[in-house]
């Protein structure tokens, strides 16, 4: 439950970012992030809120790990937790 999930910011609309997670777009709230977020950035999200901006240049390692969890065909405990995080945010 403490595992934030990274997504790529597609658009920013005031306090809301439209964030792409493996092809699925979600509305993520920005009230809890302490840096300006712009399209192209990645944000680490938890229960629908962004908690950290990650510059695109530093996302490689993080993304690869989540990639393997999300693409897991047979869901297991950890990949289910990651998918639940995606369920926490509204579709956009």
């Amino acid at each position: 439950m403490c595992l934030g999930v990274p997504g790529r910011v597609v658009a920013v609309d005031g306090p809301v970012a439209h964030v792409d997670f493996w092809g699925v777009s979600r509305r993520i709230l920005l009230d809890t992030v302490d840096e300006p977020v712009v399209p192209g950035d990645y944000v680490l999200t938890h229960v629908g809120y962004a908690i950290r901006r990650i510059p695109a240049s530093e996302i490689g390692e993080t993304l690869e790990f989540y990639d393997s969890l999300v693409r897991e065909e047979q869901a297991d405990l950890m990949s289910r937790d990651v998918k639940e995080e995606l369920g926490a945010a509204q579709q956009s």
């Binding site: 439950m1 938890h46 229960v47 629908g48 908690i51």
Partner: peptide, 29 residues
């Protein structure tokens, strides 16, 4: 799945809605 969804439940309800909140500081934010 999120506190925001609990608020949505309250918005769509005429009665009282409680969010029984759990989690460490990451979630408490």
């Amino acid at each position: 799945f999120s506190p925001q969804q609990a608020v949505e439940v309250a918005r769509q309800s005429s009665g009282q809605v409680v969010f029984f909140a759990t989690g460490f500081e990451t979630t408490a934010v």
